[in-house]
């Protein structure tokens, strides 16, 4: 499953990472090398194997339904690049 430049651009776009044409060109052989290498996994017969879900046997715990958090707006906004009137602010979104 070799990937081309268009695919690289599509992945970059899905990843929300801006790349130049030159960077896209550079990524093509690099990603192909890595992906070509991981493809050896295809050799393994896994037809009777379940994918791993928990590394160490463990049970998902259920939390009690009580309010234990919140009312910390200052902490939430403390690192915001732009915060106004208690909101985070982002470039205007047109829906």
């Amino acid at each position: 499953m070799s990937i081309d430049k268009e695919t690289v651009k599509k992945i970059a776009s899905l990843s929300r990472i801006a790349i130049t044409e030159a960077e896209a060109d550079a990524f093509v052989p690099e990603l192909n090398q890595i992906l070509g290498w991981v493809e050896q996994l295809g050799e393994v017969d896994t037809s009777k194997v379940e994918p791993m879900t928990a590394v160490i046997p463990n049970q998902l715990r259920l939390r009690e339904d009580v309010v234990t958090d919140g009312e910390i707006r200052d902490k939430i906004l403390a690192n915001a690049p732009i915060a106004e009137h208690g909101f985070f602010a982002v470039p205007k979104v047109i829906e």
């Binding site: 958090d69 919140g70 009312e71 910390i72 707006r73 939430i76």
Partner: peptide, 19 residues
Amino acid sequence: FSGASTEFGAEPNTQVSLV
């Protein structure tokens, strides 16, 4: 998935946990 309140109509970003 967090302990913040679900109450409707609170001041913005007051019912928000770090999670």
